[in-house]
């Protein structure tokens, strides 16, 4: 029995168990601190839809052994480009939403291609290089947002100065087009954002299906065992590049869905640290540096977003001050440090 428990802890990971127990505690506490249970659930579902695709975008790169994509910001930048260009073009509703995605994919493929080239040159050090590629591209784009000749009055500063605003409202363009699509209302407090969830499910299906094809299979082989892949005649670098492009494209779509649901496009330094919560969510779902599945994405996003939703309300009610930011920092970064120190090699 004791051994069995030890085994479970070993497999599941101590931090994950602690977080899970913490979450259970939060749920138990909700009624006692006077928070509506149903609104909390609703928040969690909405946030799940908002963030799910960003986390999903990490999967291809982990599968080919490129590690956790700390350069997620490249995809986000492509997404933002798509979003602001579609608004500049005055595209509204679903047309606007899909135009944004189309343009975003275009940029994401280019960025992903270059990013992939770089990551193939630095095998073994992908993660640290990716982190700083992400940071520097965000800060480079900050300059660009100031300088690019956007004209739409809804996006540039009202009082004359050049450059885009720090946040751009998607209301009037494609705000909640997905969220409100087939939306189901349950009572006064709960609604189910069917459109967002369906879209997430659709992309998840595409990713799953992709790994059933010849190329997808080859990518799994590369990630499982590079030597084996070589001996099968698989072009390892090419497969890695494809996975990087794929990850970047999905991230670009992910941020547009996020903006659609959130209501704002955040520019400048806002995307700087967006990679970490996504990575933390995936790890929380049971992934490791070398192994991740769609199951990990769904469990991870659910757990992570639950905690982010519940802690501020519950904890603030207990200690009368907002600890949520601190808890978020400890939780997400602690999860990543933990994963990095657990050296799991595919080969034994």
């Amino acid at each position: 029995m004791k051994k069995k428990i030890q085994n479970i802890i070993e497999n599941f990971g101590l931090p994950r168990i602690i977080i899970f127990l913490f979450l259970v505690l939060l749920f138990i506490l909700t009624p006692f601190v006077g928070i509506r249970f149903d609104t909390s659930i609703n928040d969690i579902i909405v946030r799940f839809g908002m963030n799910g695709i960003l986390v999903l975008s990490l999967i291809p790169m982990v599968k080919t052994g490129c590690g956790l994509n700390f350069g997620l910001q490249l995809g986000i930048i492509a997404g933002i480009l798509g979003a602001v260009i579609s608004i500049e073009m005055e595209m509204i509703g679903f047309t606007g939403f899909f135009t944004a995605i189309g343009i975003a994919i275009f940029f994401a493929v280019i960025f992903g291609f270059l990013y992939g080239l770089l990551l193939n040159k630095v095998k073994g050090d992908e993660m640290v290089v990716a982190t700083y590629v992400g940071f520097s591209s965000v800060s480079f784009m900050s300059i660009m947002w100031l300088m690019l000749p956007f004209k739409s009055p809804n996006m540039i500063w009202a009082y004359g100065g050049s450059g885009l605003r720090t946040t751009i409202n998607t209301k009037g363009y494609w705000f909640h087009v997905l969220t409100d699509f087939l939306k189901i209302k349950i009572g006064n407090y709960i609604f189910f954002p069917s459109g967002t969830i369906l879209f997430f499910a659709f992309l998840t299906f595409l990713v799953w299906a992709f790994f059933k094809t010849k190329i997808g299979t080859a990518m799994i082989v590369v990630g499982s065992n590079t030597d084996y892949a070589n001996s099968c005649g698989i072009n390892v670098d090419k497969m890695r590049s494809i996975s990087v492009i794929l990850s970047t494209v999905i991230a670009a779509i992910g941020i547009i869905v996020y903006q659609e649901s959130f209501g704002f496009i955040q520019l400048y330094t806002a995307p700087l640290f967006m990679a970490f919560p996504a990575v933390a969510a995936l790890l929380l779902g049971g992934a490791t540096v070398g192994k991740a599945s769609i199951k990990n994405v769904i469990i991870g996003v659910f757990l992570f977003q639950s905690i982010l939703t519940m802690t501020p309300s519950v904890v603030s009610n207990i200690i009368k001050s907002d600890m949520s930011e601190t808890i978020r920092i400890i939780l997400s970064n602690g999860m990543i440090v933990y994963a990095l120190t657990r050296i799991t090699r595919v080969r034994t």
């Binding site: 299979t217 084996y228 001996s231």
Partner: peptide
């Protein structure tokens, strides 16, 4: 000679190990 290293993918099922190479080549 390096069965466990580059001959096989240990964490994949038998049927995939047998067919991976043939599928790719």
């Amino acid at each position: 000679e390096d069965r466990r290293g580059l001959g096989l993918i240990l964490d994949q099922p038998i049927f995939k190990n047998i067919t991976f190479t043939a599928m790719q080549i």
